[in-house]
Nucleic acid binder design. Sequence first.
DNA 1: ACCTGAACACCGTTCAAGT
DNA 2: ACCTGAACACCGTTCAAGT
Lengths: 198, 198
Amino acid sequence: MAVALRLLDETGLADVTMRRLAGALDVQPSALYWHFTDKQTLLAAVSDRILDRAPVPPEREGDTWAGRALAAARALREALLAYRDGAELVASSLALGLGGNAARERLRAALGLGDFDAYIVDAGADAILQFLLGHVAHEQQRMQADSLGVIAAAHAVRAEDAAQPFGQAAAFDFGVNLLLDGLAKHVRTPSPAAPLAV
Amino acid sequence: MAVALRLLDETGLADVTMRRLAGALDVQPSALYWHFTDKQTLLAAVSDRILDRAPVPPEREGDTWAGRALAAARALREALLAYRDGAELVASSLALGLGGNAARERLRAALGLGDFDAYIVDAGADAILQFLLGHVAHEQQRMQADSLGVIAAAHAVRAEDAAQPFGQAAAFDFGVNLLLDGLAKHVRTPSPAAPLAV
DNA sequence: ACCTGAACACCGTTCAAGT
DNA sequence: ACCTGAACACCGTTCAAGT
């Protein structure tokens, strides 16, 4: 399993192949099928492993639901960024309905601190998760493209990107906060003002 | 190209293979490489074709930026839903930096009607697009799993899903509106109240 | 300009058989 | 319980050669 993670990091998801993984383990490819029924199942296990490494942010007293949700989202982003193609791998495992849903649960737990109807918590956690996976996958794809120098010349840093006054982390926070601000409108107790996420 | 779309719809993305596509065209696989340099490039072209079919919502007089953005998001969703695995295909083409960005441009155009800083329009359009692709990909994956009866017994309709008081279209609108509500906080002219998206 | 034929270097998965 | 060896049915891509 650790070997699978190392292989992922070194070669990228596209080159994580049953045969290569077997080779790294000094074993025949068919041996893997005693431990996992499928390649997808194996990747789902790797996927869960990546998410397990998401740091659990320390619980502080005065925490708001929005603050905790942002912290959870940031922690999940860090976990995905820790391995090459982490977001793509997790996204596809999740899309296939494989692997646990630790990520979704953590977001739900955070939103659960707010006074929401249950379906708002569900839909909100889902929306945050979708954005999170999409955003980080995009981040990682760009990192890879840039490091390979694949994107040539003028296309490398487009005018719009250069004009962006903040980095990827801030862009991520911005997106999450859009969702949290939107959610703030749905708290049951009429809040005097929309709470700040940070 | 039409053949590629039909093949996609009939067999799903995983089975759209250069060899199968060539077979459907009564041609050798190598013939495809005269027209497209790559499989990815070919898929990016199919991807663009799918997005081109997104209905352009009629422009009405009293339209708000939020109303137009929601209409654009809905139209893009429809276009993705029109073909099997449409969202997954478009997402991966976009992630690879291939194909046009007609989708992103349409969302930017809608948001551009509001009085936002340029980087807000960019980040907002991006966030909506990420959510859109993730959500619809998830929708399509579930449709497929359900139709194949792959998801067994109790797992088929989880309690949470059953408790959801609205369908997929409404869940989609809800997510988009979260983002639009969040964006509303960033309009330059101090708006008296957050505008309704619908 | 457009396509064929043949090859290269791979895949995921199965399954009898070994220890 | 855990793995090997060999096979099956595929892949994407290249490239000389044909028309």
